[in-house]
Simulated scan of single mutants.
Amino acid sequence: MEDFERLRGRLFGIAYRMTGTATDAEEILQDAWLRWQDADRATVRNPDAYLAKVVTNLSIKQLTSARARRELYVGEWLPEPVLTGRSEFDALEPLEVVAQRDSVSFALLLLLEALTPAERAAYVLHEAFGYSHREVAELIGTTDANARQLLSRARKRVTTDSPRRQPVDRAGWREFVGRFLAAAQSGEIEQLERLLAEDVVSTADGGGKVIAARNPVVGRTLVARYLIGTLQKFGVGFVLRFAEANGEPVLVAESPDGLMAVCFVEAGPQGVSALRFVMNPEKLAFAAAQVSQIGRLSDLSW
């Protein structure tokens, strides 16, 4: 019990980065706990390595089956957000180094979806948690040479597909997003367009559970019209707050019934380049549970 609780944060971090869903990560930890209870402790020389291996392999198995289910998913699939920013409520602790927080960014989780389960495991274990090539090989049950190849392929794919990310100026982000929201709520399309990058993409994950665009909306004019139309149609009955999820600033929509959406806003020199709305209630369940833990979402605002 003591060893498992000591490692719970790290084990959750591995499972969440592997699957992209907090609910799956929790189920994996429950399964790992049962296996730990049944294990012959006298033969376990290193509980840390034993439990990391169990969680890694359960995550690989879960991710493999999840890929098949996602082929039938209604609309766009996005990872589940996890609220962060207050260490006492941060499910992704322990975050021993800054790289660990970077490794759970929403954009990176999306890039990791393009990797095979084995490549993803090698990348997560080495890049996020600092396991050596030999340790990665042992955890996923392969050779040292193959572990290096898996990591090399994963790094190449992630580096090729991901532009270099600059640290977010949170004060600047909040000021810019405030202007962006004001323009969207005013209904001034031209004013909103000036704040959007020409090739901006808006993606919504409703999972068929709520009304949401099933395909990405691309381009400055279309995204502006889409946002204004959505706010005019559904903009009554909820409030928007600034919060933090996955180590980055986000907008959260909250109604009297609870969380409605978590929106990740990527902004650069050319304006807003990407909007990602997580709206599927099942995808918001973990974050909603975090909010209920602390009483009110405003305690997570910044």
Rank of each mutant, 00 (worst) to 15 (best):
A121C: 04
D48F: 15
A154I: 02
P281T: 06
A121E: 01
L222N: 08
E248A: 04
A137Y: 04
E135P: 06
I140H: 01
D257Q: 14
A204C: 15
V217F: 07
C263D: 06
W173D: 15
L231G: 07
E266T: 10
H133W: 07
L195F: 05
P216M: 15
D48L: 09
V136M: 02
P79A: 12
F286H: 04
G268H: 14
Y73I: 10
L92K: 03
T23V: 13
A184R: 09
W302C: 10
E248L: 12
E71Y: 08
G9P: 05
G75N: 03
S103Y: 08
Y16D: 01
N215G: 13
V217E: 06
G187E: 09
W33M: 14
V124N: 01
Q30D: 11
G141F: 13
Y123R: 02
L240I: 06
V217Y: 13
R101L: 11
T43K: 08
F238R: 00
L111M: 12
K209T: 00
V223T: 01
E88I: 11
R296N: 04
E113N: 03
R6K: 12
G9A: 15
N280F: 14
T143D: 03
F12P: 00
D24V: 09
K156A: 15
E96M: 09
I294T: 00
A121Q: 01
A288H: 06
L275H: 04
H133C: 04
R165S: 15
K209C: 03
A91M: 15
L240K: 01
L192C: 07
V210N: 02
G13A: 02
A121N: 01
V200W: 06
G206C: 15
R134E: 03
A171E: 13
L108P: 01
